[in-house]
């Protein structure tokens, strides 16, 4: 199967208010395909519609319009969810149960016999780095990070073919984040598709093959992470640093080069050109003015640049 998730024109409106109900659009005509066997990063600011999308896919909410399928089956197919794992944002479980009991409960919902449930519980709680002495504590005594680990463990109890992780690193310390990153990479190595939303861009850069960026419920970018970065504004440019000459002395000549920009630096100037072919012209101008080349570096766009470009901090997201 080429696509693990197919989303077609998904729209979700919420009604707010008591008497005079007002409609707000949380998700606006979202169409998206997620290839099987990859780690897919789902990005967006607060209120962009990430959690709404995941909740709709998990049939916790019903779409206002559009449809979606997971593993080739419509999301309304309850049985299909037996092949899916889900860890909600800030996972909540029965706080009167222990971690072992929660795992056992979910294992029973999948129809596993007792020895299988016990084996899976031990294996998964250890895999998410939950200390064995805490397995018999009631969840009401757990920290946020410990609950997050239980959330991840339960999402894998049925050996899912695809797992949806909503902010999986939330509440974890640096060691925990590293463990979970390794766990997620391990899932991909075993052929599991991972669909994760996160605010931690370094995790996306380290793990994801493809990403989608949402803003105000609309898709603003989607595709291979490296291709998106390469195609984004500023990618393919070069920054040339020179010293022994002031920016003002060469500004006029530099601005003759199409698209070139010059900025003053303490020891000299920085010049950005859009094309590699223009580097020689910049060097010639600098030499004529008595300057000296110190470095030439290709301009790399980071995911943060891409993210910030697509997310307007003044925009509350939901329209």
């Amino acid at each position: 199967m080429e696509y693990a998730v197919e989303i077609r024109n998904l729209t979700k409106d919420y009604e707010i208010g008591f008497w005079r109900k007002k409609r707000v659009r949380a998700l606006d005509d979202l169409s998206l395909n997620v290839r099987s066997g990859q780690i897919f990063g789902f990005l967006g600011g607060n209120g962009a519609g990430k959690t709404t999308t995941i909740k709709t896919l998990m049939r916790l909410q019903f779409p206002t319009a559009g449809s979606a399928s997971i593993l080739g089956e419509d999301i309304s197919n309850v049985k299909m969810h037996g092949r899916v794992g889900y860890c909600p944002e800030n996972p909540y479980f029965y706080d009167y149960l222990t971690a072992r009991e929660v795992m056992d409960y979910f294992g029973q919902l999948f129809g596993y016999d007792r020895p299988t449930r016990e084996q899976k519980t031990k294996e998964l709680l250890a895999k998410v780095g939950l200390n064995e002495k805490d397995w018999k504590k009631q969840l009401r005594k757990y920290s946020k990070g410990m609950l997050q680990r239980v959330g991840l463990a339960q999402s894998l109890i049925n050996d899912p073919e695809i797992v949806f992780l909503d902010e999986p690193m939330s509440g974890l310390d640096p060691v925990g984040r590293r463990q979970i990153r390794e766990l997620i990479a391990g899932l991909r190595a075993n052929g599991v598709t991972v669909f994760m939303s996160t605010h931690i861009l370094s995790d996306i850069e380290a793990l994801c093959d493809e990403v989608a960026i949402l803003r105000g419920g609309k898709l603003t970018a989607a595709g291979d992470l490296n291709e998106l970065l390469a195609a984004s504004e500023g990618a393919g440019s070069f920054e040339i640093s020179v010293d022994g000459v002031s920016a003002e002395a060469i500004r006029e000549d530099i601005e003759f080069i199409a698209g070139a920009q010059i900025t003053a630096k303490p020891q000299g100037a920085g010049i950005m050109v859009l094309d590699e072919a223009d580097i020689e012209a910049v060097l010639a101008v600098t030499r004529r003015a008595g300057g000296r080349l110190t470095s030439i570096e290709p301009v790399k766009q980071s995911l943060e640049d891409l993210f910030v470009r697509d997310i307007d901090p003044a925009d509350p997201g939901i329209k």
Partner: peptide
């Protein structure tokens, strides 16, 4: 209210 339904209904439970 406690959002425990999230983990239940994401599983094959009607």
């Amino acid at each position: 209210e406690k959002k425990t339904v999230y983990s239940i209904f994401s599983k094959p439970v009607g």
